[in-house]
Nucleic acid binder design. Structure first.
Lengths: 218, 218
DNA sequence: AAATAAAAATTTACGCGTATCATTAAAATT
DNA sequence: AATTTTAATGATACGCGTAAATTTTTATTT
């Protein structure tokens, strides 16, 4: 976020008061709402700051009081899109018969969501402007990390272990990576004749289940 | 590549002759060589076309006779970097005791290479300017695809199947996706406390080996 | 009310990638 | 040799993100 004016003292000094935190976030939300729509409709690169400013009724540079740069506005869309992804995942897990079925369902839902929103995937995970620090800082937010819990819970169930068991962590991280890899590979290298997506996802989960069997009968 | 002047006939007409294919690719190579060095030293975004033009002794727009845009110059670096990656992979596979050992080695080498060249990874697989078509067209080239063969051969050996067996293809695609996912996740989400990289890679290969055992004893 | 201080908002300016247009160079034809 | 044709080269210009400088607004203090 953008730097607030630095107040050395606690209480109001002379001069024009800075915008309240409430006012700031309210206008940020306004800008983000317009930006999300425009980015979705016309693509991130096609929407200029001058254009966005015009749409929200601000001069281009006034936007910079609310977001420190264009990329930071994009993260508002990330938040939105990632939120929707995990809504889908949660919904998919609800009707499951058992833990193993739930693991299949949430895995497929997670991958399917991004395939149905490839452009968003690219905006989130492939944006060139994105330095590693940017994605990291964002994706590490608690809200995102908590969303992965459904995977760990399902895996713990399938393996018959507690979610806190170290093996659950290792296998869960592996599955999440595997699913990310399926999305990323199939999206970024569409010219290669990949095995069908559903089968790759199923195979990824099967391997986790098989690991569970190995745990049971060592 | 850039459009060549369209010749309706076969043989020389009037007018200044277009550059020979040889001359074109020679100068492309010169430009690419300088570009690769500069991109590696200072980063893709920091090297402007004006700057690159100056370094190679051309006006900025003259570069556009040899590459249709800046991104296309970047693909020269891709070629370079991906070539190096598979050199590492091939070297890692050479000393292997057996097929399973080779699979571990090449998998680890592949992932390790990109971790040792994170900036290149981002330039190749995360560049924002990269539309899906761009990466696809490039990464689907035969040279790249052939480089994956070492994975399929090792897997076939481990599973005791021929490389042409459909299961080898499915499991191989899965492993490649899995490895990509490990790289991509650990690089793009460095804030998350991932399981150690080596362990994730080992686990990925272990699962392939376990699948081989399952094949043997159905 | 006037002066002063500080934040908000606007204006100006820069280097960027590159589209478009103008110029120059090199060949075949006359 | 002069003309014509075509490609290569160069110059100009546009919209971009945004840094920096400037102006305007809004408060407190005199």
């Amino acid at each position: 976020m953008v730097n607030r004016p630095q107040k050395t003292e606690e209480k109001p000094r002379r001069g024009r008061p800075s915008l309240s935190e409430a006012a700031l976030s309210e206008r940020r939300a306004e800008i983000a709402a317009v930006a999300i729509q425009l980015f979705n409709e016309e693509g991130y690169a096609s929407v200029s700051m001058r254009r966005l400013g015009k749409e929200v009724g601000l001069t281009p540079m006034a936007l910079y009081r609310y977001f420190s740069n264009k990329l930071e506005i994009l993260t508002a869309l990330w938040d939105h899109v990632i939120g929707l992804a995990f809504e889908d995942v949660a919904a998919a897990g609800d009707g499951a018969r058992d833990a193993q079925d739930r693991l299949y369902r949430v895995s497929e839902a997670y991958v399917a969501y991004w395939f149905e929103h490839v452009e968003q995937y690219q905006l989130v995970f492939m944006n060139a402007d994105v330095s590693k620090a940017d994605v990291t800082a964002f994706v590490s937010q608690d809200s995102i990390m908590k969303a992965y819990d459904v995977f760990f819970e399902s895996i713990a169930d399938v393996l018959g272990l507690t979610p806190a068991h170290p093996q659950v962590k290792t296998i869960g991280d592996g599955l999440i990576c595997h699913l990310h890899g399926i999305m990323h590979s199939l999206i970024t290298m569409q010219g290669y004749p990949w095995t069908e997506r559903d089968r790759l996802v199923k195979q990824a989960v099967d391997m986790v289940v098989a690991a569970g069997v190995a745990v049971e009968r060592p």
